[in-house]
Design a protein around this nucleic acid. Structure first.
Lengths: 315, 315
DNA sequence: AAGTTTCATAGCAATTTGCTATATTATATG
DNA sequence: CATATAATATAGCAAATTGCTATGAAACTT
């Protein structure tokens, strides 16, 4: 026999609270409403749920057994309500964020940690990718937002919010011999081995362009394909050089292992920012996350600018 | 935010079944009804539950999380329905049965076992008592039915269904010396020690009346207060006698340890039977149990009658 | 590109839900 | 034992919800 779930929940509330009046209050209903429900239930079941004529309302064994199931439903219902509330205020949910490896690893992962200190119940699903794929992923709803460098946006279905200028620098360890030179021209960098950024990354193209601008023909590139952690480790143990977004070097300023050469690198017309679907309704958690990233960089921007001057233009 | 439990259940059904049509069928509803529910839910929540425009209907993470709670409720609901069905057909529930010790122990406990072979999920709560208390217990709804000897019924709120004539016999072990006597008069029984039935039991009054009818003044009564198992054990190891309902001796015929003296015992105007509240609606399990007891004794009655003749009137 | 399947929408009758006001009943109190 | 008090049941009514059938609109299949 199929019966209404809400009826069982009311039954459970009444039995738990120890009375129709209290049970009704527990559910935010009036006493007559609940009373009628119970009468209806008994009538339909053809079995008494309460020992009639007893004031400290006593359920029959049957009533109690039914109420147990109602109680289970009441708990589930409560949890569902809580879930909804959390979700609506962006305190729960899932954010699927993608981006370029170095940038995600160096800067975004830390911001995610900060975000989780505020909203620990939001799940972050992170993935990596480069520009055309990122755009596809967003369009295919595999990803909510991407954090990546963008020069030209094709298609007007996307919205791009810039958070950082796309400056690159030549990175090396802090004890690198080139840092001792008084006037660093440029071509000297061709004398050192270079680490190549991940294949197909915009950074790789940037590096090629940079080396060509110094007249490179055959620079030694002995290490390719490592992610950020590998690159940093390698850098700190050799005199190798590589190209990195300035933001990445900035992120590692506290560690003190690597820095940038005081060398002007021609930077492309490109900005790092947040890419997402234009005008599409985002879940509150995604909105909150996007805002967090944007405002975090807003606060960082002055710091980053000063750092750039002190490192790149020093001496 | 409070939301309708049935809506969540429908959501769960749809996601589990993998489509609105299948989900609706699962719940015994039509597709438009469920479709509307989902639309309403999404509208109220302000969040999409499904990735729109995809045929193998794909839920959003939020939708899936909500559906999980709905699934829990669906399971609870199913179990509740099952409980109701079982209860309505007397396959589940509780039967509170009370009665006189000897009779319950000797005969009813076995019938309860038979009953449970048919309906294992009915819980039997057994208690002991004598007549006035039993009636009170029934009236106070502490007990569903009583199985006991009744002579006169006071009050017309009770219904009594006779199942066995209230015959008593003098019980002894099968090797008792009195069984060897050709013609047993009666007063010989006064030469042996007697076990007294539990205090306040009708049997105790019967025994007193019996001994008086044989002219007793001071019979030896060395053992008092034991329940049936104790009495039987004691009987089989001594030449003691006691008074027992014939039905009890009948129940132990297979064991072969005790029997009855071929002695006519004046029996009171009394019948063993089932006592319950008249006209009151009984739970199906109680009805089924009552019927089981009544029909079992119906089948036994011929057997019991023959046994009585063979034992009491033999020789 | 047509066919098939599946989902969404519309309209309507019946049920259910909620409320307030009030009657009834059970316990507590004098 | 009557009366006071608290709790539950009932009545009546407006609004929301539920169910259905019929039908339109997409999305996959072929």
């Amino acid at each position: 026999m199929k019966l209404d779930e809400r009826h069982l929940i009311q039954l459970a509330a009444v039995i738990n609270a120890g009375g129709v009046t209290e049970g009704a209050e527990l559910l935010g209903m009036t006493q007559p409403a609940v009373s009628r429900t119970l009468a209806l239930l008994e009538k339909r079941l053809g079995e008494p749920l309460f020992v009639k004529g007893r004031r400290p309302l006593r359920p029959t064994p049957f009533g109690r057994a039914l109420a147990d199931h109602g109680q289970a439903m009441l708990l589930s219902s409560r949890k569902a309500s809580e879930l909804v509330d959390n979700f609506r205020y962006g305190r729960a949910g899932t954010v699927r964020v993608a981006g370029t490896q170095f940038f995600m690893d160096a800067l975004i992962s830390g911001l995610i940690a900060d975000f989780h200190n505020e909203r620990p119940d939001v799940r972050i699903v992170q993935s990596y990718g480069y520009m055309p794929d990122l755009q596809d992923a967003i369009r295919a709803d595999r990803v909510d937002l991407a954090i990546c460098p963008v020069d030209v946006l094709d298609g007007d279905d996307m919205e791009f919010q810039s958070i950082l200028p796309g400056r690159n620098v030549v990175a090396c360890r802090v004890t690198h011999p080139l840092l001792l030179k008084r006037k660093l021209k440029g071509p000297e960098v061709l004398d050192y081995p270079w680490i190549a950024p991940p294949p197909n990354s915009p950074l790789q193209a940037d590096m090629r362009a940079l080396l060509l601008s110094f007249g490179s023909t055959g620079v030694s590139v002995p290490y390719i394909g490592g992610s950020l952690a590998s690159a940093i480790n390698y850098l700190t143990r050799t005199d190798a050089l590589t190209i990195l977004p300035h933001g990445v070097v900035f992120a590692y300023r506290k560690v003190g292992d690597i820095t940038a050469l005081p060398l002007r690198v021609p930077h492309p017309q490109r900005a790092l920012g947040i890419l997402r679907l234009a005008g599409s309704p985002q879940s509150p958690a995604v909105t909150a996350f996007t805002n967090h990233i944007a405002t975090s960089f807003g606060k960082l921007s002055e710091l980053i600018k000063r750092h750039e001057q002190s490192v790149v233009w020093k001496a």
